[in-house]
Design a protein around this nucleic acid. Sequence first.
DNA 1: CGCTCATAGTTAGATAGTCTAACTATTCGG
DNA 2: CCGAATAGTTAGACTATCTAACTATGAGCG
Lengths: 170, 170
Amino acid sequence: MSAESLELSRLLRPLLPRLYHLIRRRSPGWDMTTAQSSVITTLTDKGAMRMGTLANLEGVRLPTATSVVNGLIKLGLVERRADPDDRRAVVVDLTTQGRAEVGELAEDRNQYFARQLDRLTGEERAALEAAVPAMTRLLDLTTDRDRREAIANDERTWHSAAEIRSPETH
Amino acid sequence: MSAESLELSRLLRPLLPRLYHLIRRRSPGWDMTTAQSSVITTLTDKGAMRMGTLANLEGVRLPTATSVVNGLIKLGLVERRADPDDRRAVVVDLTTQGRAEVGELAEDRNQYFARQLDRLTGEERAALEAAVPAMTRLLDLTTDRDRREAIANDERTWHSAAEIRSPETH
DNA sequence: CGCTCATAGTTAGATAGTCTAACTATTCGG
DNA sequence: CCGAATAGTTAGACTATCTAACTATGAGCG
């Protein structure tokens, strides 16, 4: 590991939980928890998927995914379907209502956060914007638990992200 | 609110819970929860403080702070003291053991995160590093619940950050 | 002084997220 | 077709979080 990465980690890592807290603190008019929001966002971005895939993308265990999905079903935002290819499996997807609500509410949260960003200088906002691609790639490299474990176990088992991700985006 | 802030919010906000998840996923050899880690970090940075101050800085209610601090006391990392100036109040502080453990374990987590950063390009890391001051200031502007509520209620009640923060850093 | 009200914290009770372990149902490989 | 592997759920435990109610102390005012 490079000294450069370690130095950056020392600067950046302690900030992440705090930024999370910053936007977590109940953006107005939003009665979903963050775990639920995260699942909804994932489903919006990547479409319907199996429970195991969802759990991997969220970085949690299957029982946790079950519990979060149960909450979202109670809210009427997602639904379970049988996977026609494998009757052990379950596919989870947004409901029509879920899709409708997601757009509005995400925008409310964006405005809430934007009011905080508005108090920064233009330069500060530019610096944040310039970091967005790097953050996105960092997440792409690391959000799949299976892939992460495969890397940890044996560097040679690693393939291209597209190759590994393809079964999940079906 | 500027259109620029809203646009940046749309890019950045959805990333924050995910970055949080990324470092949350059990950095090795670490048996503290994130809420506990956050409190420890705050105490390390700002020193001993009253429960209410801690709750404000963490952005949670007092009972939540009580519960998190109880957990840390059980781990032997922090302690409660009476506030000599106000016998209703309680001051929470790191124990000697807490101070000792924090350094090593934070470094473990930094290395865990650094290994992930290491897979980015140098340019990407530079972009992240350039964003650190802006993130820090964003947090400085918004982590105090009282200040945030004052802003929401009446923009005119707002004073300089230093002025408002002074009673907390006593 | 001594009453009343405000403030600092804890306790109680509820709900959600998270984990591991154990269970059920299905698939797959000889 | 049977035994091992895989996909999910259920069970049970613990933490985090909230609001409401409680305790103890401080502060203002007749």
